[in-house]
Simulated scan of single mutants.
Amino acid sequence: METDRATQPSADEGRVIDARHIDPEGVTWSRVDEKYVTVRALGVAISGLIWLAITAVPLVLALTGVWGGYPRWLAWTLPGVALIWTLIDLLITRRRVRAIGYAERENDLLVRQGILFRKVLVVPYGRMQYVDVQMGPVDRAFGLCKVQLHTAAASVTATIPGVKAAEGARLREQLSDRGEARLAGL
């Protein structure tokens, strides 16, 4: 009987590794604030209304008689698709937010996100160049911020949205201190 290579013990550790999951074992993830669900839902709703208004233009033109050369079903389909897309996006918003997490380890910071396309980013403290904390007007209204980590590789940034403002300030200071300490040791 052939065994699945994804669940065979690794040669150096002797434990079972399941290749279907990319989360490291034994990591306790810190989750973003629950209020971020509302912030994210507001963004989805506003974006959906904009797309609904844009896609409704052919329908308005068809109903007023200006647009007569195309079938009416097409004019109804465009805003229908925009509405269905927005509703589906709103339904999965809570799950998307619950998938966002971060974990501070001894030598690096882990950041994860995504439902269908999962991503776990490992940022070594010694590679961090600076840490940004950003607050837009909606974030500020909910007492949240976004922490963004910039690394030595210009194309790599790790973002942790929906963090409480106090936690964001703590992360900025702690990660900056750890980055400086690891960089000095190089």
Rank of each mutant, 00 (worst) to 15 (best):
M1Y: 11
I100C: 08
L186Q: 07
T3N: 10
A75K: 00
A11R: 11
S47W: 02
L110R: 04
R40K: 15
A82N: 05
Q129I: 06
V16G: 09
R172C: 01
P161L: 04
T151Y: 05
V27P: 05
A141R: 06
P79D: 04
D12M: 11
L186Y: 14
R98E: 11
L144I: 00
P124K: 09
L186P: 00
G80R: 00
T64I: 07
S47M: 04
V147C: 05
T3D: 12
V147M: 04
A75L: 02
V66L: 12
Q134I: 14
L183E: 09
L109E: 10
L63C: 02
W76R: 00
I100A: 01
G185H: 14
A11F: 07
V163H: 01
T38E: 02
T38D: 06
G168V: 03
E13P: 10
G26P: 00
S10N: 13
E104K: 11
A152C: 05
R5E: 15
G185M: 14
V111E: 08
G68K: 13
L90R: 02
Y125H: 08
P124I: 10
L74D: 03
E106R: 10
T64F: 03
G65P: 04
L49V: 04
E34Y: 11
I46F: 00
V123R: 01
W67C: 09
Y130T: 09
G68D: 10
T28A: 07
D33Q: 04
A181M: 12
L91Y: 06
P79A: 07
Y130V: 12
E25W: 06
L74P: 01
T64C: 07
L149P: 04
L42Q: 07
Q8K: 13
V27M: 09
L78E: 02
T64D: 05
D23A: 14
T64S: 12
A141T: 05
F117C: 02
Q113R: 12
